[in-house]
Design a binder for these strands. Structure first.
Length: 633
RNA sequence: GGUCUCGUAGUUCAACGGAUAGAAUAAGCGUUUCCUAAACGUUUGAUCCAGGUUCGAUUCCUGGCGAGACCA
């Protein structure tokens, strides 16, 4: 309708205004809830051209629209806004048309180019936590949204499976794991621990041992004993100590941290870990076997977590396979003057002309930095998927600068697709107590959290749910749907870009703007339709439509554009807000009218049809958020 | 020190440059002879500060204050 009026106005402009008009002059918006109207045209842009008051311009437009646009009942002009009211017949016809579309609002599959969405990049030395949950739910939802608007989507995960941190876990396991009667160290099998938890446990063990050693070294330094310390380090320590004089508490703490860093570097255990890394890079068979084994445990653990989360991937990338990539590209880039080499052999790119600074892309010893690797990986992915058009990286906003630089480099290297790369940057998740810190034990574990919300959902559901006739398996499934649905919705309803606060109590709320609120509406409609034995038929109405009913059709009509905006803005939050609005409107309607027990057959069928469409769109929208919609609860 | 984000009811979140800045939560009151009350209705409360651009600024620009991140 909006498009229709827009085009009609443009076509009629020479007659109506005496001049052709620009498309941007015509601005529509949703009519305020407290005004009469279904669509609002902003009059101000026309005022200058028509050289009259907003009221006069509005009246002119009102008259023209009322007499020329089919489906318009009447208009009113209020302070520069032209509110257009459509006829009941128009809205009924809208609903009729929606009825016939099982995929209402969605674009045809594969009608748009292929996009890769990367939405998890875990380290294999630590279990997943709350931050990963936001990351993964967000990326998974965006992938679904892109698919819904017609893109072909490849979902991917990059696993950070190499480097010093993995070696720390491996070393600690070898050193500290108790050995059982059969001579085995701890494994997931003989402890019953999840693999990622077991490996994470040894990562913590390593850190504990490191701290103890470091403290001992610092104590020695305090007493002036530097006999085991290289002179350069000794000087650095003494300099830091000297710098502490006369400084405030904060500065002293920072300096102490630096000294502690130095001490850690002097520990035997860190040296051992570094040696292990060197062996790993040299493909030492024993180290490699240990690495493979322990990573295997972690993957099994992650798979379990992903299964619980309800997410999956089409393609996995391992950093151990890709960390050597990118060097060739850097060499090529030197030839084409994108990069330059410093006398020490390190390679850089100068981005000062683009408002950024100089960035290292290859170390002087020829080893890769993260940027090198990311350049190589990006290029590789486009080789792996020849029809790939663009890529979305779901990564926290602390990497904003990194991706800005990465995309710029790819562009300068001459890859046209660099313009289709997008950093889906999301804000950190804070706790009421502040940031999550592993050192202070405030990290919220993903598995624990999911188990907790499901348990809570179970309690609540047993208290007030409608479970008769459901067997145990179905009940457990329902608790999971509600618990996880609530958690996902809680994390996704906030604008992804924004830093958000995670309040454990609110995340399991059932009332207000929550997942269970939406799920409840879906369940209620489901049983309603079942009771009415609803079958769609063409609709007709002889009585006037109620305002509550019209509001729902209006909201339903917005589904397609909301979905498109969500895709364009990579924002599941828009769909969450949309669903919430829809359900609020529906609940108001539900409370104020009879549906199944409505005596008038036409009205009954109309209201059932409305309910059915709300249910379908709601299920669709929730599905795009990764939230399941139960039939009853 | 440089760059980048963000500042909205007590709290958590909304608002393509548009009308009287919406919700939720907390608190009170009311609604089940009728389809699931995990619902609905109702009452109170906010744009960090100072300028500028505009018919119109929470939104854009400049400066300050505050929170966070990144870079060395």
């Amino acid at each position: 309708m909006e498009q229709h009026i827009r085009q009609a106005l443009i076509a009629a402009a020479p007659d109506l205004f005496g001049a052709a008009i620009n498309d941007t002059l015509i601005q529509f918006q949703q009519t305020r809830r407290d005004m009469e109207g279904d669509l609002t045209l902003v009059v101000f842009p026309f005022v200058k051209m028509l050289r009259c008051s907003p009221q006069e311009a509005g009246d002119k437009l009102k008259q023209w629209i009322e007499s020329h646009i089919e489906g318009v009942s009447h208009c009113n002009v209020v302070s520069g806004f032209l509110n257009i009211v459509f006829t009941n017949a128009y809205w009924l016809e809208q609903l009729n048309q929606m009825q016939d579309q099982p995929n209402y609002g969605l674009a045809p599959a594969n009608s748009k180019p292929t996009v890769m969405v990367e939405y998890a990049s875990p380290n294999t030395n630590k279990p997943l936590h709350l931050g990963h949950l936001r990351n993964i739910f967000l990326g998974a939802s965006v992938a679904e949204i892109l698919r819904a608007v017609g893109h072909k989507v490849v979902r991917t995960q990059v696993i950070n499976d190499r480097g010093i941190h993995i070696c720390k876990s491996m070393l600690a396991w070898e050193k500290f794991s108790p050995v059982n009667a059969r001579g085995e160290r701890e494994t997931p099998a003989n402890t019953g621990l999840k693999g990622d938890k077991l490996v994470g446990k040894y990562y913590v063990e390593f850190d504990r041992a490191l701290q103890i050693e470091a403290k001992a070294i610092m104590a020695q330094w305090q007493s002036g004993n530097f006999s085991d310390t290289p002179t350069a380090i000794e000087e650095a320590v003494l300099n830091f100590e000297k710098a502490k004089e006369g400084k405030d508490e904060k500065a002293i703490a920072a300096l102490d941290d630096k000294i502690k860093e130095l001490a850690k570097n002097q520990t035997a255990i860190l040296h051992e870990a570094k040696e292990m890394l060197v062996k790993w890079e040299a493909r030492d068979p024993q180290v490699y076997l240990l690495w493979t084994t322990m990573n295997g445990w972690v993957y099994a653990g992650f798979d379990q977590t992903y299964a619980q989360m309800g997410v999956s991937f089409d393609k996995l990338y391992y950093e151990s396979d890709t960390f050597l990539l990118g060097k060739d590209q850097v060499m090529e880039g030197i030839k084409s003057d994108v990069f330059y080499q410093k006398p020490d052999g390190s390679v850089w790119i100068d981005l000062t002309a683009d408002g950024l600074d100089e960035k290292l892309v290859l170390r002087s010893d020829g080893t890769a930095v993260y940027m090198t690797q990311d350049i190589g990986t990006a290029i590789d992915r486009f080789k792996d998927f020849p029809d790939l058009h663009g890529m979305v990286y779901t990564v926290g906003n602390e990497q904003d600068y990194h991706f800005k630089v990465l995309f710029l480099i790819l562009q300068k290297l001459g890859y046209a697709w660099a313009n289709n790369c997008f950093h889906l940057s999301y804000g950190m998740v804070d706790l009421p107590s502040g940031k999550m810190k592993s050192r202070e034990g405030t990290v919220v574990d993903a598995d624990d959290l999911m188990a907790e919300v499901i348990e809570k959902a179970k309690e609540m559901t047993q208290e007030r749910g409608h479970l008769e006739g459901l067997d145990n398996a179905a009940r457990e499934q329902l608790y999971t749907q509600i618990g996880l649905g609530g958690l996902k919705y809680y994390l996704l309803k906030v604008d992804p870009k924004k830093r958000m606060l995670f309040n454990p109590e609110e995340s399991i709320d059932l009332t207000g703007n929550t997942g269970p609120f939406l799920q409840y509406a879906h369940a209620r409609i489901s049983t309603l339709l079942e009771k009415a034995a609803y079958v769609p038929t063409p609709l007709s109405l002889t009585t006037p439509m109620r305002p509550e009913e019209k509001e729902i059709i209006k909201q339903l009509a917005l589904f397609g554009t909301t979905l498109e905006e969500a895709a364009k803005g990579y924002s599941p939050a828009l769909l969450a807000n949309y669903s919430y609005e829809l359900v609020k409107l529906y609940n108001t309607f539900y409370q104020s009218v009879k549906i199944v027990i409505e005596p008038d057959a036409d009205v009954r069928q109309f209201r059932l049809s409305l309910s059915a469409k709300v249910r379908q769109v709601l299920a669709q929208a929730l599905g795009l958020l990764g939230v399941e919609a139960p039939q009853r609860m």
